[in-house]
Design a protein around this nucleic acid. Structure first.
Length: 231
DNA sequence: ACGAGGATGCTCT
DNA sequence: GAGCATCCTCGTG
């Protein structure tokens, strides 16, 4: 049922163009994606994170891991983004205030917020510090610790139902505001590079569940993957 | 299968 | 008081 394990692959989803301009130290020896990978244009990061592994080590030592199959991009120039025009809406001078100010912070930190009063949604901050951007992780494919994910969700759920939505995956991986505004530098929660994903197997489409800037095709998902969120 | 509606809490007007 | 980057259940076909 799980896909092939991670090989010594290049960065997930980088085009030849991006490979050429890629800084040298974006991963560590354990393939953990380091902060400067995220200090790039948000759309590239959203596309590039497809195939990456989201790895969660629980307090009792259990490791949960999952492969990212769906993301969305949110940028400073984007009415659907929490940080949209926050710079100009804030009073003169830093620091920025209000919901979304963290999106202007250090790339590679988590932005976790409560949606509809019930669901935690997990993002990674992008762009260089001082610029606003984030990638929402919308769906992942379980790899390790599936039974523990089922226990965290609800016994009896199918594998597909464990993590095929942004609120579901945070529940399955025990991610909440403990991780908010904290760097993803492990060991409790990290991202690792995964296999390379060809452009031919990536679909971009309008983002889900928003009311503004609906026309932008800033949602990215793996084609024909049963773990993506929408039908 | 599909759609409607409720749950639930935080931010901003 | 409205508006959410959602999920689940319970109706109806």
């Amino acid at each position: 049922m799980p896909h092939a394990p991670c090989q010594n692959a290049p960065h997930p989803g980088l085009t030849a163009y991006n490979m050429k301009s890629m800084p040298m130290n974006r991963t560590t020896a354990d393939n953990h994606i380091s902060a400067d990978y995220f200090a790039r244009p948000t759309l590239e990061v959203a596309r590039g994170l497809l195939g990456a592994r989201l790895v969660r080590r629980l307090e009792d030592g259990t490791t949960l891991s999952a492969r990212i199959v769906e993301t969305e991009a949110y940028t400073e120039d984007d009415p659907a983004c929490h940080g949209w025009r926050l710079r100009e809406r804030s009073s003169d001078g830093t620091p920025l205030e209000g919901k979304g100010a963290e999106l202007y912070g250090r790339p590679g930190t988590a932005y976790v917020y409560l949606c509809y009063g019930i669901h935690w949604l997990f993002n990674v901050v992008t762009e260089p510090e001082g610029s606003c951007g984030a990638v929402l992780v919308r769906a992942v494919e379980p790899v390790d610790g599936i039974e523990r994910m089922r226990a965290l969700r609800s016994d009896g759920l199918s594998d597909r139902n464990l993590t095929n939505g942004p609120g579901k995956l945070t529940q399955a991986l025990d991610i909440d505001d403990r991780f908010h505004d904290r760097p993803l530098d492990g060991p409790a929660l990290i991202l690792r590079q995964g296999e390379r994903i060809d452009d031919a197997s990536v679909v971009s489409s309008p983002r889900i569940g928003i009311s503004r800037a609906k026309e932008r095709k800033w949602r990215f998902h793996m084609a024909e993957n049963r773990y993506v969120s929408a039908r």
